[in-house]
């Protein structure tokens, strides 16, 4: 099973489904545990942002999470029908601040930028599409 989909609602309780879904997928496809952790956290951060900011109403919406392993590359595509929302336009967080200066929040996308090899955002047919990629060595784990 090299490809799998998880569809979740725009509700933060739904975030709980991501970890077990990725756990099963990564084990089946021999993805090393450190890569599993980093990609799962990245999906969590991005989907949290989508749920928080992409929908300006109280209606039910869906977010599609497609995961795929090809060779030694794990690729995740997140797709939602929310308003145009590109998290990559967030300004970089200054992590050299002291505790007093440190602002609460804004760390999510910073973490994703640092953990993933590649992040791409596109607006496609009224959908937000976010693609993240992480390569791994098959000898690890």
């Amino acid at each position: 099973m090299k490809k799998q989909n998880l569809k979740i609602e725009n509700n933060k309780q739904e975030l709980k489904k991501i970890y077990p879904f990725m756990d099963v997928f990564c084990k089946r496809n021999n993805v090393p545990s450190d890569v599993f952790n980093e990609v799962t956290l990245s999906i969590d951060e991005l989907v949290t942002n989508i749920i928080s900011y992409a929908f300006g109403d109280n209606e039910q919406h869906y977010i599609d999470i497609d995961v795929e392993v090809e060779g030694n590359l794990l690729c995740v595509i997140l797709k939602d029908e929310g308003r145009e929302f590109n998290p990559l336009t967030y300004p970089e967080v200054d992590i050299k601040k002291s505790l007093d200066e440190m602002k609460i929040g804004g760390l999510g996308i910073h973490i994703v930028r640092n953990l993933m090899d590649e992040i791409v955002y596109k607006r496609e047919n009224n959908f937000n599409v976010l693609i993240i990629k992480k390569s791994f060595s098959k000898n690890e784990n």
Binding site: L41, L99, I104, L107, G108
Partner: peptide
């Protein structure tokens, strides 16, 4: 496992 939402409450704890 810790996400940025978890880091947030740890930072508030420290403050």
């Amino acid at each position: 496992y810790v996400s940025s939402a978890g880091l947030r409450v740890l930072i508030i704890t420290a403050k």
